[in-house]
Design a protein around this nucleic acid. Structure first.
Lengths: 234, 234
DNA sequence: GATTAATGGGCTAGTGTTAGACCATTGAGG
DNA sequence: CCTCAATGGTCTAACACTAGCCCATTAATC
C-alpha cells in the first residue's frame, strides 16, 4: 500500500551524491562556478560535513568537480553538458528502465500542470509577474550552452512562485528525474522555436489568470517531450 | 535554492512515527485491525526492526496502538477518529502554523488536480474504470465513522490508477499533511451531499476522458475545504 | 493437554552518521 | 615578505541504525 512505502530512499551518502549531481547537470551551479563552502552546504542539505565530503569526493573522482584548497578555494564544477545528440538517448532510457521513465514523465506532467494551474489562480504581485516575464525573456535570449539551465530555471520558477516549498520541491524532483533525458534530446532550432511559443503561451495564461489555459499549455509543452521520446522508443 | 534543500526530513525514528501515525489517522489501518507483522513492515518501510519497534512503542505509549504478543498477536489500532467538531480546528491550525497550512493546501491542490488530469487523458482498462466507480459507490454508501477513510481511499485511488508510484506517493503525502485538518472539520449533511456531487463530477470527467473538466472538478472540490478553513481563520 | 507456527521481545556486533575540534593550505592585502 | 581569514583536510568520541540471531508468549489445532 502507498501509505507504507519506504521511509528513506537510501543512505545519506547516496542521496547526497544524487542531489549534487543533479544540481550540476541541471546547471543550478554552472560550469566554472563553485559549490557553497562545505560547512554551509552541509547545513543546507541537513547532513554532516563528513558525509558531504564523501559525496564531493565521489563526484571529484567521477570528474564532475575539481576541489581547490585554501582561501577562495572550493569545489568547482568542471562538468559541461555534452552536446545534445541522439546517440546517448537510447542508453539513457535503457539506464532508467521504461517503468521509471513512464513514472517520471507522468509525475512531471502532473506536478508541473498543477503548479501552473495554481499559479494562474493566485493573485500575483507586480514583482512576481516581473520575475516570471524575466525568466521567459532570459530563456528566449539564451545561447545554446545556457539553454537547458535557463529552461530549468523557467520551469522551476513557476512552482516557486506559488510560494509552496512542497510544490517547488516536487517539481525540482520531477525535473531531476528527467534531467538526463532532456540533456540527451537533440536540440534543433524547430524544437526551440516550438518550445518558445509554448513557453509564451504558459506565461500569458498564468498572467491572464486562466488556469484552464495554463494547464493546457503546460500539458501540450510536456507532451512534446513525451512524443519525442515515443519516437525514439519505437 | 530549491535544489539544495535537505536530503532527509529527520531521523528514521521520527519519520516512521509520523508515517504510522498518519496511516492510522487516515484509516489506512482501521480501528481494531492490526499493522503487518514487524518483520514484514520493517521491510516495507525500509528500516530496521529495532527502529520500527521504537516507533510502535512510542505510538503505544501515546495510546494509538495496543500491542499483543504471541501467535495472532500484533499491533492493533485503538485510535478512533474523534467526532468532528469545530472546537479542535483552531488548535490544529495553530499547531501547523499558517505557513505550513497554506503550503500543504497548495501542494494538495496541485498534485490532486494534476493526477486527475493525467488520469483523464489516459486510456483506462475496464478494470480501472470499475475500480474508480467502486470506490465512489463505497464512499457514497459509507456510514459516518467510515467516511473519512473511504474519502481518502477514493482520492488516493485516482493517483494510484495513473500507475505512477511517484505521483501516488505525492498525493498520499499531501493527504497526510491535511489529515488532521480534515478530521477536525465538522461533517454536516449538506457538506457531504455537496462533496458527493463533486466526487461524481470528478469520476464522470475522468471516465469521459475530459482533462479540463477533471481538473476543474477537483479544483472546485478542494476549494471547498480551503473556503471552509478561511471561514474559521477569520 | 501437548504441539506448533506466528508473532512480539531482547541482545550483540558492526556499520553509518553526526558534532565538534583542530590542522593545512592558499591568495589577498597590508 | 608577512599576516590573516576563508577554505578544504583530518581526527575522535558519541550516537543512530542495521542485520541477524535467539528467546518468550500466545492461541489454534491435534
Amino acid at each position: 500500500m502507498t501509505m507504507l512505502r519506504p521511509v528513506r530512499a537510501g543512505n545519506a551518502f547516496e542521496e547526497t551524491v544524487e542531489r549534487l549531481l543533479q544540481a550540476i547537470k541541471l546547471g543550478v551551479v554552472p560550469p566554472g562556478e563553485k559549490l557553497p563552502p562545505e560547512r554551509e552546504l552541509a547545513v543546507q542539505l541537513g547532513i554532516s560535513r563528513v558525509t558531504l565530503r564523501e559525496a564531493i569526493r565521489a563526484l571529484q573522482d567521477a570528474g564532475f568537480l575539481e576541489v581547490r584548497r585554501g582561501r577562495y578555494g572550493g569545489a568547482f564544477v568542471t562538468y559541461q553538458a555534452p552536446a545534445p545528440g541522439t546517440g546517448d538517448l537510447k542508453r539513457v532510457i535503457a539506464d532508467m528502465g521504461t517503468d521509471d521513465l513512464a513514472d517520471a514523465l507522468t509525475f512531471r506532467m502532473a506536478v508541473e500542470c498543477g503548479a501552473a494551474q495554481v499559479l494562474a489562480v493566485m493573485e500575483l504581485t507586480q514583482e512576481q509577474r516581473d520575475t516570471l516575464s524575466r525568466r521567459l525573456e532570459e530563456l528566449n535570449r539564451a545561447c545554446p550552452e545556457d539553454y537547458r539551465r535557463l529552461d530549468t530555471a523557467f520551469h522551476l520558477s513557476i512552482a516557486e512562485l506559488t510560494g509552496s516549498p512542497l510544490l517547488a520541491a516536487a517539481c525540482a524532483d520531477a525535473r531531476m528525474r528527467v534531467g538526463d533525458l532532456l540533456n540527451a534530446i537533440p536540440m534543433l532550432q524547430v524544437n526551440i522555436d516550438h518550445a518558445a511559443a509554448q513557453h509564451a503561451a504558459i506565461v500569458t495564461a498564468i498572467l491572464g489568470g486562466d488556469p484552464e489555459a495554463a494547464r493546457r499549455a503546460v500539458a501540450e509543452h510536456l507532451d512534446g517531450t513525451a512524443a519525442l521520446l515515443r519516437g525514439f522508443l519505437s
